[in-house]
């Protein structure tokens, strides 16, 4: 164990500083506003059957030309029941919402919308959950903001309510007006 000069005692500190700098740069990467790999990218290719208009398909074209909320929901998701009234309220205010019915039973989903009201302009059904994988969905509910070019602008995991709308969605949504 050399201890005469003492300079080596600083080696661990120097090594640690190098490591800390590396970690800090990586952290910087993640501090992006949008925690999704899809940020700024077009919505993954969608080709899903419509729940309400049997026989027709919903594709990416449906999102072109309008600002749209893409809400991932299911009848097995308790939080979806909670946020449903708020979605109704948004729809009344003229917000265009597409409801991706995720890993659900078509019959139950129709019943749900009949019972609680339908805030969605269109309901693509992702019964297998395949499209959810393309979107990188954790679970339901999740809500994405899609711009008129059909690109993902924001991803929000969890319940959509007045608080999350004001904090996260409103700043993005207002760009539409400008």
């Amino acid at each position: 164990m050399p201890s005469r000069n003492g300079w080596w005692m600083f080696l661990p500190l120097v090594a640690f500083i190098g490591l800390a700098v590396l970690l800090a740069t990586q952290l910087g990467r993640n501090t992006e506003e949008l925690p999704t790999a899809l940020a700024g990218k077009p919505l993954p290719t969608m080709q899903l059957p419509s729940l309400m208009r049997t026989g027709s398909e919903v594709s990416n074209d449906f999102f072109i030309g309008h600002w749209t909320l893409l809400n991932v929901w299911a009848t097995w998701c308790p939080t979806c029941y909670v946020e449903h009234p708020y979605l109704m309220q948004l729809a009344e205010q003229g917000v265009r919402i597409v409801g991706l019915n995720y890993k659900d039973d078509a019959g139950k989903a129709r019943e749900y919308l009949a019972k609680y009201g339908n805030p969605f302009v269109e309901v693509p059904a992702d019964e297998s959950g395949r499209y959810g994988i393309d979107l990188g969905v954790y679970g339901a509910p999740e809500t994405f903001v899609i711009n008129p070019e059909g690109e993902v602008v924001l991803r929000y995991v969890g319940e959509l309510n007045d608080r999350s709308w004001q904090q996260r969605f409103a700043p993005v949504w207002q760009k539409e007006a400008e």
């Binding site: 201890s3 003492g6 005692m9 600083f10 661990p12 500190l13 640690f16 500083i17 800390a20 970690l23 800090a24 952290l27 993640n30 501090t31 925690p35």
Partner: peptide
């Protein structure tokens, strides 16, 4: 959950604890 604010906090804490202790180690070598 992926949360950069938490990451930044732990990294700062890590830097203070580890950086501080390794500095103390180097200074107290005698």
């Amino acid at each position: 959950a992926n949360d950069p604010a938490r990451g930044a906090f732990v990294l700062t804490f890590l830097a203070i604890v580890v950086g501080g202790s390794l500095t103390l180690f180097a200074l107290r070598a005698p």
